[in-house]
């Protein structure tokens, strides 16, 4: 794979999780839409998130019809699109954030990838230093073209598992994934919530026997205590809407502070305990 300028230890998503594990802790994964509120400001925000302690950054692709997203991320995507975000900007964003020391995967609804060309998208993302793609509305059943492209360019494929997934679906979905598995902790769309649902531990417990991949948990996390709680049973804590709200509230210093709080929570929890 391509040489990584910043962090030679992290050439893959697996490396990111392994190096966290070597430090006796889980990984903190932070999401922000590219282009929010502008392309340059998003680069600055993502860099601040990495500096604050995000081990992996999910660079979101703003999309017109984000059916898995709640109001916070919908509004951020709208802002980015209104401010002129173009799909090609995601590659320059990844390249710049990677150069500044971040480890990036892209999280995208799949139609923009289809439109750009699946192979071309994978090639351009890998060339920019991106490590993989999270696909919230692509299930392995429809992913033949993505399997080929992600293999060809060495990108990780993160599919989602959900509390409603059957054991058979969990098995087939995790078998198709690489890098890490994204477990949605609740039934619902993105957005910060006050408490961690008990379904989060349950979906991790159900997923664990089917895969040796790290399992990240997302949807609803917003503070250090919640992060610590999730890091008690999951390998990665994924935070999205709370970063968007922080960015809106206080820009780079606010997202850096949130990342620090969340990272401290993750570190406090140590390695996940078997369920």
């Amino acid at each position: 794979m391509s040489e990584r300028a910043s962090d030679p230890s992290a050439r893959s998503v697996a490396d990111v999780f392994a190096s966290c594990r070597a430090e006796g802790r889980g990984a903190l994964v932070g999401y922000l839409p590219a282009g929010y509120p502008t392309v340059d400001e998003a680069v600055e925000l993502l860099t601040a998130m990495a500096e604050g302690g995000c081990d992996l950054l999910e660079v979101g692709v703003p999309y017109s019809d984000p059916v898995m997203d709640g109001p916070t991320i919908q509004a951020a995507a709208d802002t980015a699109l209104r401010n002129g975000f173009r799909l090609r900007d995601v590659f320059s964003t990844v390249e710049r954030v990677t150069a500044a020391g971040g480890n990036c995967v892209v999280m995208t609804y799949f139609n923009p990838v289809l439109r750009y060309g699946v192979d071309r998208f994978a090639a351009d993302l890998a060339a920019a230093g991106g490590l993989g793609v999270i696909t919230p509305d692509l299930i392995p059943d429809e992913a033949d073209e993505w399997f080929a492209a992600s293999d060809k360019y060495g990108l990780s494929r993160t599919f989602l598992v959900s509390p409603s997934s059957t054991d058979e679906r969990i098995a087939s979905t995790t078998a198709a994934a690489s890098g890490f598995v994204y477990a949605t902790s609740i039934m619902g769309v993105t957005g910060a919530r006050d408490s961690v649902n008990s379904a989060a531990a349950e979906i991790v417990r159900r997923t664990r026997p089917h895969t040796s991949l790290p399992i990240g948990v997302g949807l609803g996390v917003r503070n250090g205590d919640q992060a610590a709680e999730i890091a008690g049973f999951a390998d990665g804590v994924i935070v999205g809407s709370a970063f968007v709200s922080a960015a809106e509230r206080g820009g780079p210093s606010a997202v850096r502070a949130l990342a620090q709080e969340l990272a401290a929570g993750v570190a406090r929890a140590g390695l996940p305990q078997p369920a």
């Binding site: 059916v67 898995m68 799949f110 919230p136 509305d137 692509l138 299930i139 059943d141 429809e142 599919f159 989602l160 598992v161 959900s162 509390p163 409603s164 997934s165 059957t166 679906r169 979905t173 949605t184 039934m187």
Partner: peptide, 20 residues
């Protein structure tokens, strides 16, 4: 069997909806 009409159709959905 997976709901495709030629190359069209299928299930381009979040996993959360597959069980339903």
């Amino acid at each position: 069997a997976r709901g495709h009409f030629g190359r069209y159709g299928g299930r381009w959905v979040p996993e959360a909806l597959v069980a339903a």
